[in-house]
Write a protein that binds this DNA or RNA. Structure first.
Length: 591
RNA sequence: GGCCCGGUAGUUCAGUUGGUUAGAACGCUAGCCUGUCACGCUAGAGGCCGAGGGUUCGAGUCCCUUCCGGGUCGCCA
């Protein structure tokens, strides 16, 4: 038997034809002399009918069929009688009257029912991921992922990009995330690193003159997992020569627009909105703001600088700030307990406390009201446009903490107050990131993006005198509060690169040791270049409308970075370790 | 590494103040059933209550440890 159609490729217009379908038994409904089987393949399901009156032998065989058996069915496609039409089914107007049945394989009863929106425990589903992947929602996600990758390849190809593979066994680089290491058998005591991204290689391809490079590539970072983060993930990676910031953003806006049109049928006109990093922090307290709703941060430092409330006054005096959010209408909605819970959220982000005011018709309910003058209160209400029923939330501290606490509080409030339209996509660029940030632990400046990112021309002069003030030619693409991509224009001058290494405290010797090959390459005519990379997993996650990255990865890892299906990582044979010149140290003997 | 949450039939869950034999629904097995589509009806099987220790006359329930998993902070150029 040869398959003629996928289940839902059959249409009412095919009625009367002899067809062959193959797939898994979704459900069997045995009415005695009449058996209905819904057969499932990756396209969907269709009903097959076995009638004991027309073919007792066939009916007998069908009665042996159970859930998830693999069947091949030949039959005539028939229109159902009007009263037997199932409007909830894509193929609900038709069914296959079976004339031949082959049980291609039996199946044990699966540990969980294969259905859309499964309520089975995720651990169980991950253990049997191959069964989980039979479910239509995960199949849909992976097929969407395929479409996104296909559109990326088509789009960049049409725009002159060339896909080139870069090594997976490469050299460990300092800075950034922790590397996954691979021991070398041939070089005792030496290790390869899996790439955190193909950064250096793609820049070298620019030196080679490839002009426009792209690659859909696995990257690895040995850091803790999150709902939107896996240790191995896929980037749509690209690099271009002879471009500035605008060129890179424009070409990639074209990709994202096309992606939305072709994958989701959504119009997403370019150019996208742009916010500088400074503005994003000021207004949303985040460098990846969710701009689907308001509740913007408001600076009230000047209003309370001389206040009798010491917490506010001190924060401003010490160079910090006092900022607030007007949670519109929340004053009359939230209980004292809920407001206190918001305080706990703020504390997670190192805020010492959360001051609040509930605006009422005839005044104010607030633990801090007694420390403030009438004028101060009025000016605050005025600036926050506060109306009766509103809840005003204040954090006073160093800017960094104020932004972090209020930024996260804003997200919490947006969700709690139902202000987020989950069917909407909001996209923007965040630009002009700080080039460097100070690492308190290491007591030195470190690159915020990476050490090949170019500073903005007008800020180069501050590299020595005031490194924190230097902005970079870096940009992030932000969608619904997620960073889905980012990149930068790179440094292409040896002198500037050397200066950058100096600023982050990398000696000439260290630089030569770690990037010697790159510095050497840059001596031979490096074109100005820049690029970016999209997180394919996150992009797919957002387009699929889920907030769990495991839903868009065929075989994902759990929080402890293990695979519940294969049980990786696992111990290996002693012989393997010996060949690799590796001795393991147990935790006990370490102590 | 810190904090919070979860773990009871195959699955999803309930389980009182610590008290007899741990329940329900779905699924599974068998029988009946010719238009079902979450088919229906009848009967049945199915439990290391994550693991270990403790308190107690008695622990699914209380305490401690531990394992597994989720979220989050740190971390993630």
């Amino acid at each position: 038997m040869k398959r003629t159609h996928r289940c839902t490729e059959l249409k009412p217009s095919d009625v009367g034809r002899e067809v062959v379908v193959m797939g898994w038994v979704q459900r069997r409904r045995d009415l005695g002399k009449l058996i209905f089987v819904t057969l499932r393949d990756r396209s969907g399901i269709i009903q097959v009918v076995f009638n004991s009156e027309t073919d007792p032998e066939l009916h007998d065989k069908a009665s042996q069929v159970r859930s998830e058996f693999v069947l091949a069915v030949r039959g005539i496609l028939a229109r159902r009688s009007d009263d037997a039409i199932n409007k909830n089914m894509e193929t609900g107007e038709i069914e296959i009257i079976a004339s031949e049945l082959r049980i291609l394989n039996k199946s044990e009863t699966p540990p969980f029912h294969i259905e859309e929106n499964s309520d089975a425990n995720e651990v169980l589903r991950l253990k049997h991921r191959y069964l989980d992947l039979r479910r239509p929602d995960l199949q849909g996600n992976l097929m969407l992922r395929h479409r996104i990758a296909k559109i990326a390849r088509d789009y960049y190809d049409e725009n002159g990009f060339c896909e080139i593979e870069t090594p997976v066994l490469t050299k460990s680089t300092p800075e950034g995330a922790r590397d996954y290491l691979v021991p070398s058998r041939i070089h005792p005591g030496k290790f390869y690193a899996l790439p955190q991204s193909p950064q250096i290689f793609k820049q070298l391809l620019m030196v080679s003159g490839f002009d426009r490079y792209m690659q859909i590539v696995k990257c690895f970072r040995d850091e803790d997992l999150r709902a939107d983060r896996q240790p191995e993930f896929t980037q749509i990676d690209l690099e271009m020569s002879f471009v500035d910031v605008e060129d890179v953003m424009t070409i990639n806006e074209g990709f994202v627009s096309r992606l939305f049109r072709e994958a989701l049928g959504i119009d997403m006109p370019a150019p996208f909105r742009r916010l500088t990093y400074a503005e994003a922090m000021e207004r949303f307290g985040s460098d990846k703001p969710d701009t689907r709703f308001g509740l913007e941060l408001v600076n009230v430092s000047d209003l309370v600088a001389e206040s009798g409330f010491k917490v506010f006054k001190d924060a401003v005096e010490n160079g910090g700030s006092v900022r607030a959010i007007n949670a519109i209408g929340a004053g009359s909605k939230f209980s004292r307990r809920e407001i206190d819970a918001l305080g706990e959220v703020a504390k997670t982000y190192k805020a010492k406390g959360l001051a609040w005011m509930v605006v009422e018709e005839d005044g104010l309910r607030s633990p801090i009201a007694k420390f403030l003058t009438e004028t101060e209160i009025e000016s605050i209400k005025d600036r926050l446009d506060a109306k009766p029923g509103d809840l005003l939330l204040f954090v006073a501290d160093r800017d960094e903490i104020v932004f972090d606490a209020l930024g996260h509080l804003r997200l919490e409030l947006g969700e709690k107050l139902g202000l987020i339209d989950h069917d909407r996509y909001d996209i923007l660029w965040v630009t002009e990131f700080p080039l460097l940030e100070y690492d308190e632990e290491e007591k030195r400046w470190v690159a915020r993006h990476h050490m090949f990112t170019a500073p903005m021309d007008e800020d180069i002069e501050y590299l020595d005198s005031d490194p924190g003030k230097v902005r970079s030619k870096a940009y992030d693409l932000v969608m619904n509060g997620y960073e889905v991509g980012g990149g930068s224009i790179r440094i292409h001058s040896q002198e500037l690169q050397a200066k950058m290494f100096r600023v982050i405290g990398l000696s000439d010797e260290q630089a030569r040791d770690r990037f010697g090959f790159m510095l050497e390459a840059f001596k031979y005519g490096t074109p100005p270049h820049g690029g970016m990379a999209f997180g394919l997993d996150r992009l797919t996650m957002l387009l699929a409308g889920t907030d769990n990255i495991r839903d868009v990865i065929a075989f994902p890892k759990v929080q402890a970075a293990s695979c519940l299906m294969s049980n990786a990582p696992d111990v290996v044979e002693k012989k393997q370790l010996e060949e690799l010149h590796i001795k393991t140290v147990s935790k006990k003997s370490e102590e």
